[in-house]
């Protein structure tokens, strides 16, 4: 039990190397990979996410913690596959067309992964059609849209329309976030969820996938 706490705590401090060493120790001690994932890595990331949401940790701390989680998760991946452990869902994520800002989008990606969600990162300047095509081909339950510019936020509405035209609107939930958007805009374009920060986005995504 204490080694899982150690993994969680070292992850929160961004100590990727120590996290990997502890994971190896836990595996050697016979700990199940899914337990290491949920009670070590994801527990640590959940705590960081909550602290980020309440404003007691900041962006660099989230980044180094997420890096430790990613390295730990990569190490666990073959063990998890062997054990048949699956993610709780799949999301495609990107910054909308015309917008090249990606730090917010990257934070959301890390937080979603910290909730055990598989994320397909489409990058920045992503066309509405690409979100829809990816959601269909990769069987995504979530489409997550980011925008920083007032001039690009309108593209989010186009994604919602394209999802309707493609006949997948009832199969995917569309989440939006970014500085210029808000709840009213979310309702206006017919998206499903607006969240004001990355940690809230991850909480909302998990709630949607486990509802």
């Amino acid at each position: 039990m204490s080694i899982l706490n150690d993994i969680s705590e070292n992850l929160q401090r961004g100590k990727a190397k120590v996290v990997k060493e502890l994971i190896q120790q836990a595996l050697d001690a016979g700990e199940k990979p899914e337990t290491i994932l949920s009670e070590g890595l994801l527990d640590g990331m959940n705590i960081i996410g909550a602290k980020f949401k309440e404003g007691t940790v900041y962006v660099p701390e989230v980044l180094v913690a997420a890096r430790a989680m990613n390295q730990g998760a990569a190490m666990l991946k073959p063990y998890l596959e062997e054990a048949g452990v699956k993610s709780i869902g799949r999301a495609c994520l990107g910054t909308v067309q015309g917008d090249l800002h990606d730090i917010g989008k990257n934070l959301v990606k890390m937080m979603l992964e910290g909730k055990g969600i598989e994320v397909i990162d489409l990058g920045t300047d992503v066309a509405p059609e690409t979100f829809i095509q990816t959601a269909i081909e990769q069987d995504c339950q979530l489409i997550c849209l980011s925008a920083l510019l007032t001039t690009t936020m309108g593209v989010m509405g186009e994604v919602v329309k394209k999802a309707e035209e493609a006949g997948i609107r009832d199969k995917v939930k569309i989440m939006i976030g970014g500085a210029p958007v808000d709840e009213a805009f979310c309702r206006q374009i017919g998206a499903d969820v607006y969240t004001p920060d990355a940690a809230s986005a991850a909480d909302a995504a998990k709630a949607l996938l486990t509802a």
């Binding site: 404003g55 940790v57 900041y58 962006v59 660099p60 701390e61 917010g104 500085a179 004001p196 920060d197």
Partner: peptide
């Protein structure tokens, strides 16, 4: 800063 406040902590 961004829409949720400072990007770094006061210690940083």
């Amino acid at each position: 800063s961004y829409n949720n406040g400072p990007m770094i902590s006061e210690d940083c």
